[in-house]
Design a protein around this nucleic acid. Structure first.
Length: 486
RNA sequence: UCCCCAGUAGCUCAGUCGGUAGAGCAAGUGGCUGUUAACCACUGGGUCCGCGGUUCGAGUCCGUGCUGGGGAGCCA
């Protein structure tokens, strides 16, 4: 430890400002090391540079402990700042949230609770956070943190969450790439309204109050009604019928006035589409995807996930383990109806063939009856959109919903209707004007083949993976009705 | 959009029967300590969400609006 003491001593009082400036310049040329790499080190290291933000400070008689976080991982780095540092008096006044550059040696920690710490040879104060800094060294409510969404990524929980979000997005790309899927960039601005997907956000360049006269769209940018996409499915079908297996992964917009903890106006959706694939293969892919993402966070986001299993949902790990190990239950819609009718449960909404399953019904199936993810398939055609393939019974379509406990529907998908005549008949039944879908119908005119796909809500997946109960807390800057402040 | 709940110090909350406001944490000051949600003492800190009403008197009761949360519907 002698060499530590001597280095600390070099930074002491008698240093002229010229020498200090030289040292400062030198320090700025040092390569920055991220805290995640330091804490994972096998050996001590001389003269490392750490940039980060102060989480908390504990003062001792002749030195201060500075807990520094740089966002590279959940854990803080403990920095020991001796009173021999030239700016020690300033360091003792440092507040939570201040930005620092620390130069020093990585040494085995003399205290309990951490393996490594840095003995500072110099601490540059990059920026002081005044005492009005809204984040305190204590637990804050999720509701309060939503009101300071621009600062909440600096907390342990939201830092962990947004690391998991980024890593999971990457893992989704890896999952599909390993299976030979190509990523498709489906348009954000579209003219098509994916039937039944909800209300649309209009996109226009017309000034407010200008309705464009007799033809409302003739003066508009595209010369046609335009809106933000509610689904990349139709585009994905076209690419699947060319490249085989594709997926979209991008933002999706719904102008629905939904006020629940699992709906947002702007969210991300993963939509795989596979040529030569039936409903059964579709279910296989959905199940594999959810299992793989569960395994991914358990194994590859372990440190961050630990926070959620400790403070957010104590049952998280066993739930995820069950999701990974047990096969998903697969039952036709009729069987789900029978189970619900025979359950003896009193539901607010009656269970009857031909009406859609209510939230309370889905939760009974996943949380009470099966206690596991459940895939319900073959729904009555009258409650599903025109593009789903009509089964041989003529009454049901090859649709499937993956339901998981607490979250409810996480995946909705189907085998697509590939027969031109049946598709046109269904459009007529659903009162859809085929003229807007001529390009879509072309895919059934030329080399039509069976194909299937689904949409998975990325935020709902994150909720399932972390146990976070509100979708507003898995999106950095969530958009919900009346809420776009950040 | 409908139903229910809440709004009091920077944060989390208590506030009895209607009688002029409290705690913990945070902040500031000082002390102690290889500490780790550090600890101890002291100090400062309030448009009781807004508006209107009832009352001698309203944080408390009534009406209304706003904001937030939960549930439902729509869906991913």
């Amino acid at each position: 430890m002698l060499w530590c003491a001597s280095i600390a001593g070099n930074g002491s009082g008698g240093l002229s400002s010229g020498v200090f400036k030289t040292r400062h310049r030198k320090r700025r040329q040092m390569q920055r090391t991220k805290i995640i790499d330091l804490l994972g080190s096998d050996t001590p290291r001389r003269q490392v540079l750490v940039n980060g933000w102060l989480r908390t400070r504990r003062d001792s008689k002749t030195f201060s402990f500075l807990e520094v976080n740089d966002g590279s991982c959940l854990a803080n780095l403990q920095v020991v700042a001796n009173d021999t540092l030239p700016n020690y008096e300033e360091l003792r006044k440092l507040t939570t949230g201040s930005a620092l550059a620390v130069a020093g040696d990585l040494v085995a920690s003399g205290g309990k609770g951490q393996r490594w710490e840095v003995t500072a040879s110099a601490v540059d104060i990059l920026s002081v956070a005044p005492e009005t800094y809204p984040l305190q060294k204590k637990r804050h409510s999720d509701e309060y943190l939503r009101s300071i969404a621009h600062l909440r990524p600096r907390t342990n929980k939201y830092g962990a969450l947004f690391r998991i979000r980024a890593d999971t997005a990457w893992a989704i790309h890896r999952f599909f790439r390993q299976r030979g899927f190509r990523w498709l960039h489906s348009p954000i601005i579209t003219a098509s309204d994916c039937e039944g997907a909800g209300e649309l956000f209009r996109v226009t360049t017309l000034p407010p109050g200008d309705n464009g006269g007799s033809d409302p769209f003739s003066k508009d940018f595209f010369g046609a009604r335009a809106n933000l996409t509610v689904s990349g499915q139709l585009a994905a079908e076209m690419l699947a019928l060319a490249l085989g297996d594709v997926y979209t992964f991008g933002p999706t917009f719904r102008a629905e006035n939904s006020n629940t903890r699992r709906h947002a106006a702007e969210f991300w959706m993963v939509e795989p589409e596979m040529a030569f694939c039936d409903l059964s293969g579709n279910m296989d892919l959905g199940e594999a995807l959810i299992k793989e993402m569960s395994r991914f966070v358990m194994e590859e986001c372990a440190a961050d996930l630990e926070l959620f299993s400790r403070f957010v949902d104590p049952g998280l790990k066993s739930t995820l383990a069950g999701t990974i190990e047990k096969p998903f239950v697969r039952i036709p819609y009729v069987e789900a109806v029978t189970i619900l009718q025979r359950s003896g449960q009193r539901f607010s909404f009656p269970v009857e063939y031909g009406s859609d399953l209510q939230t309370e019904h889905e939760r009974y199936l996943t949380e009470v009856h099966f206690k596991a993810p459940v895939i319900v398939y073959d729904y009555p055609k009258q409650i599903k959109p025109f593009y789903m393939r009509v089964n041989n019974d003529g009454q049901t379509v090859a649709a499937m919903d993956v339901l998981v406990p607490v979250i409810g529907e996480i995946i909705g998908g189907s085998q697509r209707e590939e027969r031109l005549d049946v598709l046109e008949a269904r459009m007529q039944e659903c009162n859809i004007d085929p003229s807007a879908y001529e390009w879509y119908l072309d895919s059934r005119r030329y080399g039509s083949v069976i194909h299937s796909g689904f949409g998975m809500g990325f935020e709902r997946l994150l909720m399932m993976l972390t146990g976070v109960a509100n979708i507003r807390d898995v999106i950095p800057f969530p958009r919900t009705p009346g809420n776009i402040a950040f």
